[in-house]
Design a protein around this nucleic acid. Sequence first.
DNA 1: TCCTACAATGGACATTGTCCAAGTCAAGTG
DNA 2: CACTTGACTTGGACAATGTCCATTGTAGGA
Lengths: 139, 139
Amino acid sequence: MSDLLERLRGRGWRMTAQRRVVAEVLDGDHVHLTADEVHAAAVSRLPEISRATVYNTLGEMVTLGEVIEVATDGRAKRYDPNAHRPHQHLVCGRCGAIRDVHPGGDPLADLPDTERFGFTISNVEVTYRGICPSCAATA
Amino acid sequence: MSDLLERLRGRGWRMTAQRRVVAEVLDGDHVHLTADEVHAAAVSRLPEISRATVYNTLGEMVTLGEVIEVATDGRAKRYDPNAHRPHQHLVCGRCGAIRDVHPGGDPLADLPDTERFGFTISNVEVTYRGICPSCAATA
DNA sequence: TCCTACAATGGACATTGTCCAAGTCAAGTG
DNA sequence: CACTTGACTTGGACAATGTCCATTGTAGGA
């Protein structure tokens, strides 16, 4: 069930009640919570958990490469536990819903050398923006 | 020279000293300033310009479609005056340098219907991340 | 069981951005 | 050119998000 927790445990991560709760809250598919949302969900299971701990824990998960930071809206960063498989994001501009998507093709191949300015490119992020079906229905 | 200013004037935008300064500061190629950087540069030409005005003015330029908002780092939004030609961004993960790039191909074509979740997609943003030549030299 | 290094806490602080009431001004009108 | 008016600007308060730090607590090994 909790893949994320298992992965963290397997890396010898020191386990505490707080870290377990954060990992559990964050686990799943198409999960893209803000730090505050993670904190709110964590508090309902462990009332005394602090904001600082949530921020610390999320930051460590990102450093370990088990969680990805996503900035789709210029507001709060979101945290995506689906780090084991490369994917991109599809965002609804009205309600903010986010889906993980898996485009075919290699976006890196589309960037000719003359457009690389001598950079060594390590990563490509693609964000598709549009309107989700339920928002389109109530347009 | 000041394409941005010309475009705004051509739209019947009411011109003030503050707006002119913001437009002048923001004009150019590969320009991706934060609101605060715009404000700092504007203050050096018009010392009494306020932060609120810079935010208001940038927001209006974005609404008019003459400036694009870019969120490459989850920190402050950046403002890109190169709105007349579609492009993507190449970002140095070390120093934060940003270049405008023009990939070939249509990233939208790479997303099969089965991965669209019924969304109506209107826009695709691609961010290439890597290390720029001068950072690579001092690694 | 005890130690010790690492983790959690909470509150201050920093950064970025928004809002508002009051004063100021661009630009059209006569 | 002076007047008028609605739009623009201002500065400061406030909000949202995130970071830092000294203190307290605790997981996990000896």
